[in-house]
């Protein structure tokens, strides 16, 4: 059995290598980025573009087409003939939250092939112990008995708003959101004492935690988070709430693009990720690459979609 698996794996690798060797794109490549230039995903797409240029000898254009939760970039992608060289960056919200909150945008996961994952991050609930005395989830529940809970998050339709709403809803805690257009602002509001807690990703809160201003008390993942020195952040599941949501970004192309060519591009990205140039660029950009394959990314999106549908139907749709 083991032998058979080993043979199959070797064959798969050989086929991948062959695909990479055979593939020679006929034209330049285009990665549409539905986020502003200079943002994290834009930066990461540019680093990947550098690798693809070196691998295939073609220019890779980064085209920032912002707005409408990715629909404008998707419309641009749909306007060209399906081809692996025509790609776009995407985020998990496009296929989980946007279809629920803005159905007119009309993006469907089924219409795309995922070329590669780019990143994946845990979302956490942070508190400010210096101002509220809250140091853990039980402390927050106790605090909520005689205080209003106001949390910082993005607007309804955003991941952090949904996660906080579902968490407090499931816990039976009345809570209201003070919204902003970025997690950095939410954490600033928390540091300034304008909200009681806030949901944000691990990287956004890292420096506040290291400095001792903010403390993460819940992580929305399957495993406790141990990335901060001396802190083990419990999962929402361990507290009795089935909330697992990992934000992720990825590069995708049309479902009708040739899968062998898509695979060749993925292999080229993986090969580039082993180089010193990639490692240096990623480290400089404070990027922890998660270059998952298409199937893994799609499975993550599907799992998150179930939570979003539950949250939307229970707490927003009424």
């Amino acid at each position: 059995m083991k032998k058979a698996v080993a043979i199959l794996l070797t064959l798969a690798l050989l086929m991948s290598a062959a695909a990479l060797a055979d593939y020679a794109p006929a034209k330049d490549m285009n990665i549409r980025v539905p986020f502003a230039a200079g943002g994290a995903v834009d930066t990461q797409a540019r680093i990947i573009a550098q690798g693809l240029q070196e691998a295939f000898g073609k220019t890779v254009f980064i085209n920032n087409l912002t707005g409408a939760n990715g629909a404008i970039a998707a419309a641009d992608l749909a306007s060209v003939a399906p081809d692996a060289t025509e790609m776009m960056a995407g985020g998990i919200a496009m296929f989980t939250l946007t279809p629920l909150f803005n159905p007119s945008v009309g993006l469907k996961l089924e219409d795309y092939q995922i070329v590669t994952g780019i990143n994946s991050e845990d979302q956490m609930l942070y508190v400010n112990p210096g101002l509220t005395g809250i140091r853990d989830w039980d402390g927050l529940v106790e605090y909520a008995k005689d205080h209003r809970i106001v949390f910082g998050s993005n607007t309804p339709g955003g991941a952090t708003h949904l996660l906080a709403t579902v968490l407090f809803g499931e816990a039976g805690i009345q809570a209201e959101a003070v919204t902003s257009d970025g997690s950095a602002k939410d954490l600033l509001a928390l540091a300034g004492g304008n909200v009681v807690c806030a949901v944000a990703s691990t990287s956004v809160g890292a420096q506040y935690v290291e400095e001792g201003t903010l403390l993460p008390i819940v992580v929305m993942s399957e495993e406790p988070y141990t990335g901060f020195e001396g802190i083990e952040v419990p999962t929402a599941q361990s507290l009795g709430y089935d909330i697992v949501f990992k934000t992720c970004n990825f590069i995708m192309t049309s479902k009708d693009a040739d899968p062998a060519e898509v695979e060749a591009i993925y292999q080229a990205i993986l090969a580039y990720s082993e180089t010193d140039a990639f490692k240096t660029a990623a480290a400089n950009a404070n990027w922890v690459p998660v270059l998952a394959d298409g199937a893994t990314v799609k499975a993550n999106i599907e799992a998150a979609r179930a939570l979003c549908e539950y949250g939307f139907n229970t707490y927003y749709a009424q």
């Binding site: 502003a36 200079g38 950095a184 420096q207 290291e210 201003t213 400089n284």
Partner: peptide, 27 residues
């Protein structure tokens, strides 16, 4: 704090990050 004042500053934020300066309280 990693909070840009306007659109140009938002792009600069990315530039700082790309060049290895992670903005925030410990920068």
């Amino acid at each position: 704090m990693g909070i840009p004042g306007d659109v140009v500053a938002a792009t600069l934020l990315g530039a700082f990050t790309m060049h290895g300066l992670v903005v925030g309280p410990k920068l």
